[in-house]
Amino acid sequence: MNTLIIDDEPLAHEVLLHHSRAHADIEIVGQCYNAAEALAFLAKLPVDLILLDIHMPVLSGLDMLKVLLGRPQVVLCTAYQEYALEGFELDATDYLLKPVSAERFAQALDKVRRRAGETAIPVEPVASSHIVIRVDRAYRKIELDKVQCFEAYGNYVKVWLEDTCLLTAATLKYFAETLPSDRFIQVHKSFLVNKDKVVAQDREKVRLAGEKLVKIGNAFRRNLVGLWQ
């Protein structure tokens, strides 16, 4: 579970790093010391879990959550218990008071794992004509004939539609195994395309109806054989 620590106190980082080492499924992929730095980090690398302080300069942890899109699970770590209600209203998984003990940290991670298990398959195939995906905290019905392609994006997948792009917490492998193979083919390790949206093809790439270009991976060239037959 890729995890980001956000706290303006270096000592707090050390405590959380120490506790995290006891949990093999927790990988600390980043450490930020203010909300602005964290938002920039998350724009490049989405994560599964944020360990977040509340009192930070300029932008508080709670204010950061209010503007964060595609929010992962969040465990608030703070010395101030009076913000607990607001934290849970923002859908925080747990609320830890500093100094954070190893036992209490482990309990919070158990909650994180349970919630992750409840949403382990965030995309539900409903019928051959559409799917339902989770976007932020809501579910969206997507007509398959409007999908250009699916693109792997870290721990997420970008769903490219005719006029927009949606981000959902899923894997490309899940889409490849769930969607009808006669309509969607994998052409690259990071791309699954709608066959009906392919308007041009050469050895290196395919062009989709919306003019989006997608590279063809060597291991997937055979999937394009007889594309228009």
Score class of each variant (00 low, 15 high):
residue 160 W to S: 03
residue 187 V to A: 13
residue 116 A to Q: 15
residue 113 R to W: 09
residue 64 M to V: 03
residue 166 L to N: 06
residue 52 L to E: 05
residue 106 A to D: 15
residue 77 C to E: 06
residue 154 G to F: 12
residue 52 L to K: 09
residue 142 I to W: 05
residue 167 L to A: 11
residue 58 V to A: 08
residue 129 S to G: 14
residue 123 V to G: 02
residue 92 A to N: 05
residue 133 I to V: 15
residue 62 L to V: 02
residue 126 V to K: 13
residue 48 D to M: 01
residue 93 T to A: 12
residue 125 P to F: 06
residue 72 P to Y: 08
residue 144 L to S: 10
residue 82 E to M: 05
residue 124 E to I: 09
residue 173 K to C: 10
residue 128 S to K: 11
residue 108 A to I: 07
residue 185 I to V: 15
residue 121 I to F: 15
residue 127 A to M: 02
residue 79 A to R: 05
residue 55 H to P: 00
residue 108 A to M: 10
residue 184 F to C: 10
residue 74 V to W: 04
residue 128 S to Y: 05
residue 71 R to N: 07
residue 143 E to A: 13
residue 55 H to A: 14
residue 90 L to A: 11
residue 113 R to V: 00
residue 100 V to T: 04
residue 58 V to W: 00
residue 120 A to P: 03
residue 129 S to C: 00
residue 102 A to R: 08
residue 188 H to V: 04
residue 54 I to G: 01
residue 63 D to C: 02
residue 106 A to H: 04
residue 87 G to R: 01
residue 96 L to D: 04
residue 117 G to E: 14
residue 47 V to N: 08
residue 76 L to R: 01
residue 56 M to I: 12
residue 145 D to W: 00
residue 96 L to M: 09
residue 166 L to S: 00
residue 115 R to W: 03
residue 86 E to C: 06
residue 166 L to V: 11
residue 113 R to S: 08
residue 100 V to E: 08
residue 113 R to Q: 14
residue 64 M to S: 09
residue 140 R to I: 07
residue 91 D to C: 04
residue 154 G to E: 11
residue 146 K to T: 11
residue 128 S to R: 13
residue 165 C to M: 14
residue 81 Q to F: 03
residue 188 H to N: 12
residue 76 L to V: 15
residue 142 I to S: 04
residue 99 P to V: 03
residue 74 V to C: 11
residue 131 I to Y: 00
residue 76 L to H: 01
residue 115 R to K: 15
residue 119 T to E: 14
residue 85 L to E: 12
residue 59 L to D: 01
residue 100 V to G: 04
residue 99 P to R: 10
residue 138 A to G: 02
residue 63 D to M: 05
residue 64 M to R: 01
residue 145 D to H: 12
residue 70 G to V: 00
residue 105 F to G: 07
residue 58 V to N: 12
residue 168 T to R: 03
residue 180 P to R: 11
residue 64 M to E: 10
residue 163 D to P: 00
residue 180 P to L: 09
residue 52 L to S: 03
residue 167 L to N: 12
residue 171 T to W: 09
residue 71 R to C: 15
residue 150 F to W: 05
residue 124 E to H: 10
residue 187 V to H: 13
residue 157 V to E: 08
residue 45 L to H: 12
residue 118 E to M: 14
residue 152 A to M: 05
residue 66 K to V: 11
residue 140 R to M: 14
residue 122 P to R: 14
residue 112 V to F: 13
residue 182 D to S: 14
residue 164 T to D: 15
residue 105 F to Q: 08
residue 102 A to Y: 06
residue 55 H to I: 07
residue 121 I to W: 09
residue 75 V to S: 07
residue 68 L to H: 07
residue 52 L to Y: 01
residue 112 V to M: 02
